[in-house]
C-alpha cells in the first residue's frame, strides 16, 4: 500500500467483498462462518467499524431475516442485498482499477473492461456522494427521532437515486470527451505482502467453495 492512502488496503477489501459474495451464495451456515471470520479479520486489520458495519449489516440481515422470510423470492432479494453490499464495500475500500486492470491483462475485452470500470467508478462516486449527503442531513438535524430517521433515510435515498442518474449522464459525457475506449492505464504495483497473498487466496477459496456448493452435483 502506498503512503498516504486513507483506505485500509486491498487485502481487507478483497476479503470482505469476496466473503460477502460467498456468504450470499453459500447460504446461512457459510454466512455465519464468514461473518465470524470477517469480524476476526476486522479486528486483526484494525478496520474502522464505520467501514465494516455496512457489510456486517448485510450479513446480519441475511442471517436474521432469511429464515423467516416469506418464500424464495424474498430470500433471493436478501442475498442480492448482501452481494451488493459486498461489492459496494469492496469498491469503497480497494483500488478497483487494480482488479479491472488485472482482468485487462488477462485478455478481457475492451467492452467488458469499460463496463466494469464505469460500474466501479460509479459505485465509488455514489458512495462518496451518499457519505456527504448523510453528513449534510445529520448536520441539518434530519435524523432526530424515529420519524426523523425514516424521513432522513427517505430523503437520502431519493437524493442519491436522482444524483445517480445525473452522474451517469455526466460520466458518459466525460468519458466520451476523454476518448475512453475500454483501455485502462496500468495502476501502480503495490507491494504484495505474504499476508496479502494469504488473504487473496483465502478469499478466492471462499468464493470457490461457495460457488461449488451451489453446483448441482455437489448437493
Amino acid at each position: 500500500m502506498r503512503a498516504g492512502l486513507s483506505r485500509p488496503g486491498p487485502r481487507a477489501a478483497l476479503l470482505f467483498g469476496a466473503c460477502g459474495a460467498a456468504s450470499a451464495l453459500a447460504g446461512l451456515h457459510a454466512a455465519a462462518g464468514v461473518l465470524a471470520l470477517s469480524l476476526a479479520l476486522a479486528a486483526a486489520t484494525r478496520l474502522g467499524t464505520a467501514r465494516f458495519v455496512p457489510l456486517a449489516g448485510s450479513f446480519a440481515l441475511v442471517l436474521v431475516v432469511a429464515p423467516v422470510s416469506p418464500g424464495p423470492a424474498a430470500r433471493a432479494l436478501l442475498q442480492g442485498l448482501a452481494v451488493s453490499a459486498a461489492v459496494v464495500v469492496a469498491v469503497a475500500l480497494a483500488r478497483w482499477d487494480r482488479a479491472v486492470a488485472a482482468l485487462q491483462g488477462l485478455g478481457a475485452g475492451r467492452s467488458a473492461v469499460a463496463f466494469l470500470a464505469i460500474a466501479c467508478a460509479h459505485v465509488e462516486a455514489a458512495g462518496r456522494g451518499a457519505g456527504r449527503g448523510l453528513e449534510a442531513l445529520r448536520l441539518r438535524g434530519a435524523f432526530g427521532g424515529v420519524r426523523g430517521l425514516a424521513r432522513g433515510t427517505a430523503l437520502l435515498v431519493a437524493r442519491e437515486l436522482r444524483r445517480s442518474l445525473e452522474r451517469a449522464d455526466r460520466t458518459a459525457d466525460a468519458l466520451a470527451l476523454r476518448g475512453f475506449d475500454g483501455r485502462l492505464p496500468a495502476p501502480p504495483r503495490g507491494p504484495l505482502s505474504a499476508g496479502d497473498g494469504a488473504a487473496i487466496a483465502a478469499a478466492a477459496l471462499s468464493v470457490a467453495l461457495a460457488v461449488g456448493s451451489r453446483l448441482p452435483w455437489s448437493r
Binding site: R95, W96, D97, A117, A121, E124, R167, R170, T171, A174, L175, L177, R178, G179, F180, D181, G182, R183, L184, P185, A186, P187, P188
Partner: peptide, 18 residues
C-alpha cells in the same frame, strides 16, 4: 465529473492510453 480513476497519475494517463 471529469475524473474517473482512483489514482492521479492513472487518471491523467487515461486519455493518452486510449
Amino acid at each position: 465529473d471529469g475524473l474517473f480513476l482512483p489514482g492521479v497519475l492513472e487518471d491523467v494517463a487515461l486519455g493518452p492510453v486510449n
